Amino acid sequence: MSLRVSNTISSSSESPPPSLELCFENVNGSCVKSPYSPGPRVLLYVVFGFGAVLAVFGNLLVIISVLHFKQLHSPTNFLIASLACADFLVGVSVMPFSMIRSVESCWYFGDSFCTFHTCCDGAFCYSSIFHLCFISIDRYIAVTDPLVYPTKFTVSVSGMCISISWMLPIVYIGALFYTGAHDDGLEELACDLYCIGRCQLVLNQDWVLIDFLLFFTPTLVMITLYSKIFLVARKQAQKVEATVSNSESSSETYKARVAKRERKAAKTLGVTVVAFFISWLPYITDSFFDSYLGIMTPSFVYEILLWFGYYNSALNPLIYAAFYPWFRRAIKLILTGKVLKDSSSTINLFSK
């Protein structure tokens, strides 16, 4: 979501003094380059590069695990795999180019690719939001009614949720940027801000507000659902204790086991939702106030907030590895090459 929102006029398109370093030497209208010294530059490349590599390979492991092992073929896990796909694409198509722009303070890949890169950035972020929202709905049904859940949230329903999570962001972002609606009323500002080597598109206040609502509305839904989930989970936990102490029927014991499993899954995915919210909230809030207060956040602060959000794409696989034993087993089988065996897809990942 690398949008630069501002109501102030910049002089970046003016001819800089000869002593200043330019993004493109001997090119009229080039942006001024603000290079870091060698030490910080290397450190930033290491930090940003590590995040990109972790996002790519961590999410690739999630995707392979869910798609390869038949035991993981469930509506929830298909949603998780699709979410991992969005994070994987952030690591492949967004983070490497943003890394160079952030460290070098210049965009070397052309205006057309700048628009495409920004569209990918926004689309994959919003796709993650919708995925997480549908996952929270899935978990709510699973925890509140675990025995009926398999008939309510089927694979076909999960597929429909995945389709919506991809199509809506792509259509929205594509319409926003390729129709030019994002800078309606700010054409003069966009022209003043433009220089060769810049890739931070201007967004007017109407679309900033829409972006703000598109972030907070699903987030509010998720917070509401997970609040209800944990209230129900507390009551179920108390009931489980009573069931064990009273030695009730095997059917009641089975219900207790199912409820416990669904509560554990909800807890893990709740951590994923909280991590996403914390990662992107500072950037979204900063963009909103930048636009409506007419200020410009310093570039280094802007980059920190942006990369704080990007790092969320690398965080989810670490959460799964910490909370899901089946994911740790799947990783071990993948990295040791055992998934290449004919019968590997039927391996029991849930055995102790």
Rank of each mutant, 00 (worst) to 15 (best):
L67N: 07
S345Q: 09
Q238G: 04
S2M: 05
L203R: 01
P298A: 07
L43W: 10
K338R: 13
K239Q: 14
F177K: 05
I196F: 13
T224V: 12
V258E: 12
S105K: 08
R41C: 10
D183N: 13
E188R: 07
L293V: 00
L44T: 09
D145R: 13
K332R: 11
A321C: 10
E303C: 02
V240R: 12
V62G: 05
G174L: 02
S313W: 05
S15M: 07
D183Q: 15
P169L: 12
Y149L: 03
S158K: 03
P146D: 09
L349E: 00
L214Y: 11
F48G: 00
S37I: 01
L168Y: 11
G174E: 01
M99Y: 02
S65E: 09
S98D: 15
L189E: 03
F24R: 11
K152L: 14
D138W: 05
P16K: 08
D145W: 00
H182A: 14
G180F: 14
T179H: 10
G185C: 06
V90S: 08
Q238L: 14
R328L: 07
M99G: 10
I129L: 14
F124V: 03
G270H: 11
P282H: 05
P17D: 15
S291F: 08
L203V: 15
E188Y: 08
L147C: 09
M95Y: 08
R263T: 15
K341R: 15
K152G: 04
I229R: 02
F327C: 06
C23Q: 04
S2D: 13
R101P: 00
V148K: 15
I80Y: 09
S279V: 10
K267S: 11
D184N: 10
E248K: 14
F327G: 03
T154A: 11
A266G: 07
A265Y: 03
F48T: 03
P38S: 14
L61N: 07
D192A: 15
I137M: 12
E104C: 08
F113A: 02
S102W: 10
L340E: 03
T217H: 04
A256W: 05
E188K: 10
P218S: 04
